[in-house]
Amino acid sequence: MSKITRQGSNAILSGSVEYHNFVYLAGMTADDLSLDITGQTKQVLAKITAALESNGTDTTRLLSAQIWLKDIRDREAMNKCWVEWLGDAGRPARACVEANMADPRHLVEIMITACR
């Protein structure tokens, strides 16, 4: 049976799960909810970078991304941060939608799947 590795687990979820060299990250949100969409997006992307690195991968190995925005009108500002963060790395398959957030102060949540 193949090994499943989980990191950052609690009673509800794991921060990441690795299986057969695929890395699944939980949806990530900003810690500082006083920030605007640009600040929250940059904070989320930094958390994703750290989570990818702790799982032995990086932004060049992204497969898919799901992005939830509290207000879809923030898409342009979020995309500016996204493009800067990706640099010349390959682009993942991606969805970006408006959603009611668990905490109304959350402006963006991003979930990533990558490979090692």
Score class of each variant (00 low, 15 high):
Leu69Thr: 09
Trp85Glu: 05
Arg91Thr: 14
Ser34Leu: 07
Met28Thr: 07
Ala102Arg: 13
Ala46Ile: 04
Met28Val: 10
Asp103Asn: 11
His20Asn: 15
Ala51Thr: 08
Ser34Phe: 02
Ala50Gln: 15
Leu63Cys: 03
Val97Thr: 04
Met1Ser: 14
Arg6Tyr: 09
Ile112Met: 14
Met111Arg: 06
Asn79Ile: 12
Thr5Glu: 02
Lys42Glu: 11
Leu52Trp: 04
Gln43Thr: 10
Ile110Met: 11
Tyr24Thr: 14
Ser14Tyr: 01
Gln7Thr: 15
Leu13Glu: 12
Ala114Arg: 01
Glu76Thr: 12
Leu86Lys: 13
Ile67Gly: 02
Ser9Ile: 09
Ser34Thr: 10
Ser64Ala: 10
Leu107Ile: 08
Leu63Lys: 06
Gly15Ser: 14
Ala51Gln: 04
Leu63Ile: 09
Gly87Cys: 10
Asp58Pro: 07
Met101Pro: 04
Val44Leu: 06
Ala30Tyr: 00
Asn21Leu: 05
Asp32Phe: 11
Leu107Tyr: 04
Leu52Val: 00
Ala30Leu: 05
Arg91Met: 15
Ile67Met: 05
Leu13Ser: 12
Asn55Ile: 01
Ile110Gln: 08
Phe22Ala: 09
Leu63Met: 08
Gly39Leu: 13
Glu109Asn: 15
Thr59Ser: 15
Asn79Gly: 07
Gln43Val: 02
Ala11Arg: 15
Ile4Lys: 02
Met101Trp: 07
Ala11Pro: 03
Asp71His: 06
Leu69Phe: 10
Leu69Gln: 01
Gln43Asn: 10
Asp74Leu: 00
Leu69Asp: 03
Ile72Asp: 01
Val23Glu: 01
Ala65Ser: 12
Glu53Met: 12
Gly87Phe: 07
Glu18Ile: 04
Arg105Pro: 02
Asp32Leu: 10
Thr29Phe: 00
Leu69Tyr: 05
Asp58Val: 07
Cys115Val: 04
Thr49Gln: 05
Ser9Lys: 15
Ala26Lys: 09
Arg94Ala: 10
Leu52Ala: 05
Gln40Cys: 07
Thr41Ser: 14
Thr60Lys: 12
Glu18Cys: 08
Ala65Asn: 06
Ala89Val: 10
Ala89Ser: 15
Leu107Met: 10
Arg73Glu: 11
Ile72Gln: 03
Asp103Met: 06
Ala95Val: 13
Ala51Phe: 02
Ala93Ser: 13
Ala77Asn: 07
Asn10Trp: 05
Gln66Met: 11
Pro92Asp: 05
Leu35Met: 09
Glu18Trp: 05
Val44Gly: 00
Ala50Leu: 13
Ala65Gln: 04
Thr38Gly: 04
Gly90Ser: 11
Arg61Cys: 13
Leu52Gln: 00
Ala26Leu: 12
Ile67Trp: 02
Ala65Trp: 02
Trp68Phe: 14
Ser34Gln: 14
Thr41Asp: 07
Asp88Glu: 14
Ile67Pro: 03
Ala93Ile: 06
